[in-house]
Amino acid sequence: MSLITGLSDRYPHLGFDGRPLAIECDDGWLGILHAFFADADKSMGAGGTFTLLQVRETMGGLRIHYATAEVESDVGRAIADACRQGSARSFHICEVCGRRGRLHSFHGLRKVVCSEHADGELDKGVPFEGPFNAHDPYSPEADPFVGARPTVAEFDAAPIIEAWLIEEQGEGGPRPWLYGWFFGQPDISDGDHGHTSPIVQMDDMAPPRWVRTDSRLYRLGIYYPPAEREIRYWAQKQARRPLAHGEPPGGSNDIEAMLIFLRSSGRLRSTKIDRMEQAYREEQERHKLSRG
């Protein structure tokens, strides 16, 4: 799914009009765009119209061009402030991967990248200070949106959650958390299943590669759709051993074999296995339809 398609589906009232060239930047800035459009969508609840004109990278930073009509003055100021904040944030977030970054020059071409992407297809970049306004009160250190994003070194040192799944909470309840199989977590044995503390921020890339919780940063390993994951979870649990690093939960990618194993084990009710199998079949059918 392209950036423009995903954003227009999520914010249908913001006048994207399905234009395929309206957004021209790399996926690492997707989180900045989500934050801006969420603010704009909330502000437009007071009435009026918002039309996206163009999103592009200019002199290394993010530029969002839009038009509003029939909006109150305070609404216009709120959207303009959100737009300025998005641009300021872009100078501290890698345009390629969304981790912490800084402005680099690639033989005169400016681009905000992390240390990993400072040496790649554009050759080796040279970091330098950007065109920051001394009178602008924005500080990346005081902005949780930027501060929660990992550096490359922090990401590489983070423990991994394999076969993760979000545990959602009801409106007004505790924040969601993740559960899965852990590796490199000092408080959980490798290969054991557990859950994190509540989520602070999650990578906006698809699929996401990291999550920060109240207690630590995690790298995110492979993701399985919910129905398939439930079968894998019970197959791994009934095997009565930790998950080996690099091994898929359930021991293989043969879901049919896992269902046979669960039925033969006699440890789960047949109605429960029937429900899991039906949910898996429906999940697979939806996947086929979504791929056309």
Rank of each mutant, 00 (worst) to 15 (best):
T5K: 11
G6A: 14
L7D: 00
S8T: 04
P12C: 01
H13Q: 12
L21W: 06
A22H: 00
I23H: 00
D26P: 00
L30W: 08
G31R: 01
G31W: 01
A35R: 15
S43Q: 10
A46T: 13
L53V: 12
G60A: 05
L62C: 12
H65W: 10
Y66K: 02
E72Q: 15
D74T: 15
G76N: 14
I79P: 00
C83Y: 03
F91N: 08
F91K: 07
I93D: 00
E95P: 08
E95W: 03
C97L: 11
R99C: 06
R100F: 02
H107Q: 14
L109Q: 11
R110G: 06
V112Y: 03
V113Y: 03
H117P: 05
A118R: 06
E121V: 14
E129D: 13
P131I: 01
F132G: 05
N133W: 04
A134M: 07
H135T: 15
F145R: 11
V146N: 06
T151C: 02
E154Y: 02
D156Y: 02
D156F: 03
A158I: 03
W164Q: 05
I166F: 08
G172I: 11
R175A: 15
R175S: 13
R175P: 05
G184E: 02
H193R: 13
S197Y: 00
A206S: 14
R209V: 11
R216T: 10
L217N: 00
I222L: 09
P225C: 01
E228V: 06
E228H: 08
E228S: 14
R229T: 01
R229G: 04
I231D: 05
W234L: 12
Q238R: 12
Q238T: 13
R240T: 06
R241H: 07
P242M: 02
E247D: 15
N253Y: 12
N253G: 11
N253S: 10
F261E: 13
L268V: 10
T271E: 14
T271A: 13
D274H: 12
M276Y: 13
R286Q: 15
H287D: 11
